[in-house]
């Protein structure tokens, strides 16, 4: 317990932890402020104004159409056969009134039920990034500066030291993630109340958002464990960060290009971001558009592949076992110099 307390304190004292947290929160605050500023509350006056604007635009369009038809008929009378007008001037008709919906002339407004779910992906992404960087640095810097060796001189139980450190990291990140997610819920509820609408928020909708938030927090924790495990395996922060860049740039981009060239079906199914998307949105439906190319004149009915959050959870579990298990094994077996 004392080791856990010391590691928790070390985590909080570290500059990178503080800076990464502040930076992550600053990005999220910027997003929230941006959403607040770019949306407006829609009241009856705004709706009436939009009605008038829609009517005016439609009237203007009708006038312009009438003028154009008149020009067309005059040209037909002159025997002008240029391409500027259609052969039959009666084809020129004004657009129907309902094309100009008042909604098009309303300011953007924040619909909590329709839009909040998407913003949770941003929170999850930022928290996962903070978790990965802080997690990898938390153990990588220990290896790099000799702190791990010093700690093992005090507590010569290698795996216990490693896992206690991980437990402290996850505790800190969980506190940050839960607080941030709750603040996010609160901020956007406030935005929706003042600059949009909170209509339609049923118990089911709340439950869905809560589960999405929970999956976001879980994703951040998993990212932290992966960063921690990779840095511990390589005994350097750069191992995790370099590994992540390598996987994303070479593995994912390269693999994507290669699979596209070979004409493989459902290329996205091989790419990690697809699984992250499936995790956050519960499912992602992939379509094989190549079937449409085979029959270009018929109706496009592509073959589909549905990836669900359960698929992603399997993938995350396998990654965790492989990387954290490897880190524990290496910690136990390898000499410390």
């Amino acid at each position: 317990m004392s080791l856990y307390r010391a590691e928790l304190r070390r985590l909080v004292l570290r500059r990178l932890t503080r800076w990464a947290t502040v930076l992550g929160l600053a990005v999220l605050a910027t997003v929230a402020i941006g959403v607040f500023l770019s949306n407006q509350k829609i009241d009856d006056a705004a709706r009436a104004k939009a009605e008038v604007a829609a009517e005016e635009h439609w009237q203007q369009q009708v006038r312009q159409t009438e003028e154009f038809r008149a020009e067309c008929e005059q040209a037909a009378a002159r025997g002008d056969q240029s391409d500027r007008f259609p052969p039959d001037c009666s084809q020129i008709s004004p657009p129907p009134r309902d094309v100009y919906s008042p909604d098009q002339f309303l300011s953007s407004t924040f619909d909590f039920r329709a839009s909040f779910g998407g913003t949770l992906i941003a929170v999850a992404a930022i928290l996962a990034l903070v978790g990965f960087v802080v997690g990898s640095s938390f153990v990588g810097a220990e290896w790099n500066t000799g702190g791990m060796m010093t700690m093992l001189l005090w507590r010569p139980k290698r795996v216990t030291v490693l896992l206690t450190k991980l437990a402290a990291l996850l505790t800190g990140l969980l506190a940050l993630a839960v607080t941030t997610t709750m603040l996010w819920f609160g901020s956007f509820w406030l935005i929706a109340t003042t600059r949009g609408t909170t209509e339609g928020m049923t118990a089911g909708a709340w439950q869905s958002f809560a589960l999405t938030g929970l999956r976001g927090v879980t994703l951040a924790l998993v990212a932290a464990v992966l960063g921690f495990g990779l840095a511990s395996l390589g005994r350097h922060t750069a191992m995790a960060l370099g590994g992540a860049v390598g996987v994303m740039v070479v593995g994912q981009f390269g693999l994507g290009v290669l699979l596209s060239l070979t004409g493989a079906k459902f290329v996205e199914a091989w790419l990690l971001p697809t699984y992250v998307q499936a995790w956050m949105q519960k499912e992602v439906v992939l379509r094989d558009w190549q079937t449409c190319r085979v029959n270009p004149f018929g109706q496009c009915d592509p073959e589909t592949l549905t990836l669900t959050w359960q698929h992603t959870s399997g993938l995350l579990a396998a990654g965790l076992v492989l990387i954290l298990g490897g880190a524990c094994w290496a910690m136990r077996r390898r000499d410390i110099s």
Binding site: L13, R14, R15, A141, T145, G146, G147, M149, T150, L153
Partner: peptide
């Protein structure tokens, strides 16, 4: 053991 190494910012 060998050179002393500490977190520079602590």
């Amino acid at each position: 053991v060998e050179s002393p190494q500490f977190f520079p910012h602590f």
